[in-house]
Amino acid sequence: ETSLAHNPESASTWELLARAHLRLGQYRQVVEAARRGLAIDPQESDLVSLLAMAHVELGETEQARAAAANAVRLDPESETAHLAYGHAALAAGDAKTAAAAFREVLRLDPGFDPARDLLVTALKRRNPLYRILSNLRGRFLGGWRMVLLLPAVPPLVAVFVLIAVLHWAAWVAEAVTVLRLARAKATRLLFEGVEARVALASCALLAAGVGVLALGIALGQDALGTAGAAVMALVTPVQEAAHTGSARGRRVLYGWTGLLVVAIVASVALGSTGVALLAVYAGIGTIWVAAGVRRFSPAPERPPGR
């Protein structure tokens, strides 16, 4: 800002100011700075890319896509332009175009890890079921403070159960989608070992749970059948732990998962349907445990992308 006070006709300084506002989350100021710079140099692709990114964050999808397309037209070899184009396409729900854009970013700059993460996100969102369930999970977050409302409004338990089941279904879709992509020849290199192993473990828990549930029904043993449902519910704590950015938070959630496993084994050994049912509720209800853990053990801040 001091530099611009001395020389307001410097497009590169307006670009630097726009980047600073973008890092601070001041998206309207990004738009203003980018437009001031473009008034000086309309052919500056990076300024147009920053404008597109700001429109994405402001929810102005059509403006974002138009600006991003213009940035790519101005400089087809700019990874920043393709990154903005991918962000805009992803915000518009066009996962196929977004994936192509992020692949282009990685072609231009193979070491740019955020583009790899965004490509994985775009590939996942090409699965319609994953997309629907992921959107529902994002809409019904179920923050940990909601638990405090239960004593005042007991009927909310039905809402809690619905939210928990939606999250569980979304995590199942996540596991199946990741496992499919991790095994496909064209995309297997995009997935780290941990991510693929967690997906495999989640799918194995689902299959084992179905098997135990079926066995319990066949033998007429309620405790065994309910334990099968509890095993399936373990998908939520495993996925919540794996998707927690804080190492301490992951340890806490994996410890919680271990306690649930002990409870399930105990329910089978004791023939206790009540203990198994509590394990089911605790398993799918891990979304609130995880929300509290993340609140008190936040993930370390990642450096911003381009």
Score class of each variant (00 low, 15 high):
S3R: 15
L4Y: 14
N7Q: 14
N7L: 05
T13I: 04
A18W: 03
Y27S: 00
A34G: 05
R35V: 02
A39G: 15
S49R: 02
L58Q: 02
E60N: 11
E62Q: 05
A71N: 06
V72L: 08
P76W: 11
T80V: 11
L90T: 03
A92W: 04
A95N: 11
F102V: 00
L106C: 08
D109Q: 15
P110S: 13
R116W: 05
T121M: 06
P128D: 05
Y130E: 00
I132F: 12
I132S: 01
L136V: 15
G142F: 08
W144D: 01
R145I: 01
L150V: 14
P151K: 03
P151V: 00
I163A: 10
A164L: 09
V165Y: 12
H167Y: 05
V172A: 06
K185W: 12
T187Q: 07
R188N: 15
E195L: 09
L200K: 00
A204R: 09
A214P: 13
A223S: 14
A223Y: 10
G225K: 07
G225Y: 07
A233G: 10
L234Y: 08
T236R: 10
A241F: 01
L253Q: 03
V268I: 15
S272P: 07
G274S: 13
L277C: 01
V280P: 06
Y281K: 00
A282G: 13
G283S: 13
P298K: 11
R306Y: 12
